[in-house]
Design a protein around this nucleic acid. Sequence first.
DNA 1: CATAAAGTCTATAAAAAATATAGACTAATT
DNA 2: AATTAGTCTATATTTTTTATAGACTTTATG
Lengths: 138, 138
Amino acid sequence: MLSKKTQYAFHALIYLAENVDKGPILISEIASEKSISIKFLENILLELKNAGILGSKKGKGGGYYLLRTPKEIPLARIIRLLDGPIALLPCVSLNYYERCENCKDEAICGLHEVMSKVRDATLKLLENKSLKDILTRE
Amino acid sequence: MLSKKTQYAFHALIYLAENVDKGPILISEIASEKSISIKFLENILLELKNAGILGSKKGKGGGYYLLRTPKEIPLARIIRLLDGPIALLPCVSLNYYERCENCKDEAICGLHEVMSKVRDATLKLLENKSLKDILTRE
DNA sequence: CATAAAGTCTATAAAAAATATAGACTAATT
DNA sequence: AATTAGTCTATATTTTTTATAGACTTTATG
């Protein structure tokens, strides 16, 4: 399951995408529109900013805005940033790999093989689908 | 990521499958072979027993054993039992479904659509791959 | 039938992670 | 100068995960 953090991030990004024309959007506006604790959302938006996904502006007329088009923001990027590994086991993670103890040889480990396939199938979708793909179509 | 509980369950089941010919296997033997806390493993094996996956025998000569052939034990079954939902969001879970607030219509929710696809791709593997598939091939 | 072996059950503890909040600080606008 | 709005660091709370304890039941067998 994705954490609340990641779920909130998706909803915030969707809101930002749907309101690009309005310029910078207030944290408080996103929070109330999407029913997210404003302080919690602050942290999330900051992380997205530090990762280069969002830009921000302080002071009056400030707020957050997308730095790229929705199509250029893969879902996998957001999940990895806020949730960590997408793989089901550390030993098959591409970005957060950890060798498994008790496993002499990953090459002949059946668990490793199946979980690699699961990872690949998941990534094929999450790397190729972007923020654009989760915007509500009328 | 799969919990330790599920990971331990897989290792225990693999050990049981690889030693079917030896009759009932002691919890303590599995625990020491697989470096798992014996008390923690107890709980896990009990859950597997209550779910009808393992059988057990008390007293001398007792222990745990598989009730079915490895081929008849899908990986998805174990994961759902010990870890819960396989889907990334409650609103796309088949076995642990929860409606999402803030979402007027799942039918037109883009997030719902993508996450359903991820679930399907994952399940296609985890429902069809079984304990047999994760046994180490020489 | 007594004893020892081995799983069962219930409860609790400890640790880690997820979720949420507080408040002082900085930058931009007017 | 005053106000607005994001930034940063720290901490608190809650939930989940992981682990442990100990009394109880069943079975085998000498």
